[in-house]
Amino acid sequence: MRISRNVSRKRRLAQWAAPLAAGLLVLTGCGGSGGGGGEGGGEAAAEYPTEAIQVMAPADPGGGYDMTARSIARSLDEGGVIETGSDVYNVPGGSGTIGLTQFVGENAGDPHQLMVIGKILVGAIEQTDSQVDLDDTTPIARLTAEYDAIAVPADSKYKNLKQLMEDFKADPGSIAWGGGSVGGVDQILVAKLAEAVGIEPSKINYIPYSGGGELTPAVLSGDVDAAASGLAEFADQIAAGEMRLLAVSSEEPIEGVDAPTIIEAGYDVSIANWRGVVAPPEITDEQRAAAVSMIEEMHDTEEWQQVLEANNWEDYLMTGEKFSEYIDQEDKDITKTLKDLGIVE
């Protein structure tokens, strides 16, 4: 959905709530005054940004990409980083690759365009045979990470990760793993766990679900034996004692979470579902540096720190060329895992 909703629009919406009462006036002509979202220029040419920052979320509203994009826009605006305003818009489809293709194709050389990317997109590019990949963008910064949880129903016989992994190793097919979409972070985590105990990833019995809302009932009803998903997805059920958290996928223990990391439990596996932003291709080095410093400044705002806290996102900042190298590394790593899983050829 090509939707742009950010703070300034929300505010505008409030003024419009009453006219909306006559929403059908679309037909009779309710005209519109308020011009676009801040095309203001007027600053010196060397300044950046000189126009509104456009942030694309390559997914439907509501998901992680969308929330990241909106949080960036809000922190840029309200944190006082930029004066020119910002807009968020969504381009769903193709697991994010439609958005990527459009972003690269239409915005070459425009430093005011940003797009949110993440670990899932790296896999999706392979999976959908996308013609455009992340090499075609100019990476700006990695910003956040979320960690996966490995959980079982409260009445499961597995009290810790070791017990689960022993059964898994003995008969890989007997453990039905639930998790997110095919080729996503959750499945990659399970594949890495399998490799850690010497199981061929293609032997894993992995059942994908569209998200936490669909996966949670499947865990509680006993459909799947164990599940991997974002920690936040299971937080309510874990707190209510309906699920047992066996381990988290972070490198270091997470404060306030009563479970070991997978590494602590004895398996050398960690995984972070990271997200960041990229700019279009063909921007100059100066423009890239300016965008990086804008995002760094945004990262330091009070608003952004609140966003991290409210969403339980790990601060995972990495910028510029280092981020480019990180993406390359991730690409190799994920592609290999997806090949092992038989998802891509």
């Binding site: 439907d60 509203p61 509501g62 998901g63 998200g211 936490g212 809302g213 669909e214 949670t216 009932p217």
Partner: peptide, 15 residues
């Protein structure tokens, strides 16, 4: 519902 990332199901009445 899905636009708002809400998945109707047995959990909806609780969540």
């Amino acid at each position: 519902f899905q636009i708002y990332n809400i998945q109707p199901g047995p959990q909806l009445f609780e969540t």
